[in-house]
Simulated assay, not measured.
Amino acid sequence: MKLGLHISDFTWGLSADQLAPALARIARDADEAGFDRVSVMDHVWQIAVHGPPEHEMLEAYTTLGFLAAHTSRVKLLTLVTGVVYREPGLLAKIVTTLDVLSQGRAMLGIGAAWNEDESRGLGLFFPPMKERFERLEEALVICRQMFDGPEGAHAGKHYTLGRTLNNPRPVSPRVPILIGGSGEKKTLRFVAKYADSCNLFAGPDIAHKLEVLKQHCAEVGRDYDEIEKTVVYRYGTVTDGARVDQVLEELAGLRALGFSVAHGGVKNLADPATLATFRDRIIPEAAKL
Score class of each variant (00 low, 15 high):
residue 23 L to S: 08
residue 23 L to Q: 03
residue 27 A to E: 04
residue 30 A to N: 11
residue 31 D to R: 04
residue 31 D to P: 05
residue 32 E to F: 00
residue 33 A to L: 03
residue 34 G to A: 08
residue 34 G to V: 09
residue 34 G to Q: 07
residue 36 D to E: 12
residue 36 D to T: 01
residue 36 D to G: 01
residue 37 R to L: 14
residue 39 S to H: 04
residue 39 S to D: 01
residue 39 S to R: 01
residue 40 V to P: 06
residue 42 D to V: 07
residue 42 D to L: 11
residue 44 V to G: 02
residue 45 W to G: 00
residue 45 W to M: 14
residue 51 G to S: 11
residue 52 P to Y: 02
residue 53 P to S: 13
residue 53 P to F: 07
residue 53 P to K: 07
residue 54 E to N: 07
residue 57 M to Q: 15
residue 58 L to P: 12
residue 58 L to V: 08
residue 59 E to W: 02
residue 59 E to Y: 08
residue 59 E to Q: 11
residue 61 Y to T: 09
residue 62 T to P: 03
residue 62 T to S: 15
residue 64 L to Q: 06
residue 65 G to K: 02
residue 69 A to G: 15
residue 69 A to E: 05
residue 72 S to M: 02
residue 73 R to L: 05
residue 73 R to N: 14
residue 76 L to H: 08
residue 77 L to M: 15
residue 78 T to N: 05
residue 79 L to I: 15
residue 81 T to H: 15
residue 82 G to K: 02
residue 84 V to M: 08
residue 86 R to A: 03
residue 88 P to M: 08
residue 88 P to Q: 12
residue 89 G to D: 04
residue 89 G to I: 02
residue 89 G to Q: 09
residue 89 G to Y: 01
residue 90 L to G: 00
residue 90 L to T: 12
residue 90 L to K: 03
residue 91 L to E: 00
residue 92 A to P: 05
residue 92 A to L: 04
residue 93 K to I: 00
residue 97 T to Q: 11
residue 99 D to R: 06
residue 99 D to C: 09
residue 101 L to A: 11
residue 101 L to H: 10
residue 101 L to Q: 13
residue 102 S to T: 08
residue 103 Q to D: 15
residue 104 G to M: 09
residue 104 G to C: 08
residue 105 R to C: 10
residue 106 A to H: 05
residue 106 A to N: 04
residue 107 M to T: 04
residue 109 G to E: 09
residue 109 G to L: 08
residue 111 G to A: 14
residue 112 A to Y: 01
residue 113 A to Y: 09
residue 113 A to F: 05
residue 115 N to Y: 14
residue 116 E to Y: 07
residue 117 D to W: 10
residue 119 S to I: 03
residue 120 R to K: 15
residue 120 R to Y: 07
residue 121 G to Y: 12
residue 122 L to T: 04
residue 122 L to S: 04
residue 123 G to A: 10
residue 123 G to F: 03
residue 124 L to S: 01
residue 124 L to I: 10
residue 125 F to P: 01
residue 127 P to Y: 01
residue 127 P to T: 00
residue 127 P to W: 01
residue 127 P to G: 00
residue 128 P to Y: 05
residue 128 P to V: 10
residue 129 M to V: 15
residue 130 K to I: 06
residue 132 R to I: 11
residue 137 E to W: 04
residue 137 E to Q: 14
residue 138 E to H: 09
residue 139 A to G: 07
residue 141 V to F: 01
residue 144 R to N: 03
residue 144 R to Y: 06
residue 144 R to H: 04
residue 145 Q to Y: 03
residue 145 Q to T: 09
residue 146 M to L: 13
residue 146 M to C: 10
residue 148 D to F: 00
residue 149 G to W: 12
residue 150 P to H: 12
residue 152 G to F: 13
residue 152 G to E: 12
residue 153 A to M: 11
residue 153 A to G: 06
residue 154 H to M: 02
residue 155 A to D: 15
residue 156 G to F: 09
residue 159 Y to K: 07
residue 159 Y to H: 12
